[in-house]
């Protein structure tokens, strides 16, 4: 799974960090930070959930 974050789109809602705190964090402006360089199979469902909940659709998944 190839995951990218669109930082200019990020509104800092923090939904990703809330549901997938081991994969996503926020910088001091609230903008998304990816904590892992690659997403393994065990994390895929969690990433999908974070992407669905992102109000700005700033987390994009390509498979």
């Amino acid at each position: 799974m190839d995951v990218t974050v669109n930082k200019p789109a990020c509104v800092g809602a923090g939904q990703c960090a809330l549901v997938a705190g081991e994969l996503f964090d926020q910088d001091d402006d609230g903008i998304v930070i990816m904590l892992k360089p690659t997403i393994g199979p065990s994390d895929e469902a969690t990433v999908r959930r974070a992407a669905t909940l992102c109000p700005a659709r700033a987390i994009r998944i390509a498979e």
């Binding site: 809602a13 923090g14 960090a17 809330l18 402006d29 609230g30 903008i31």
Partner: peptide
Amino acid sequence: NMPRDFRIAR
């Protein structure tokens, strides 16, 4: 204007 603190405070 404090998104990170906001998330923690939730």
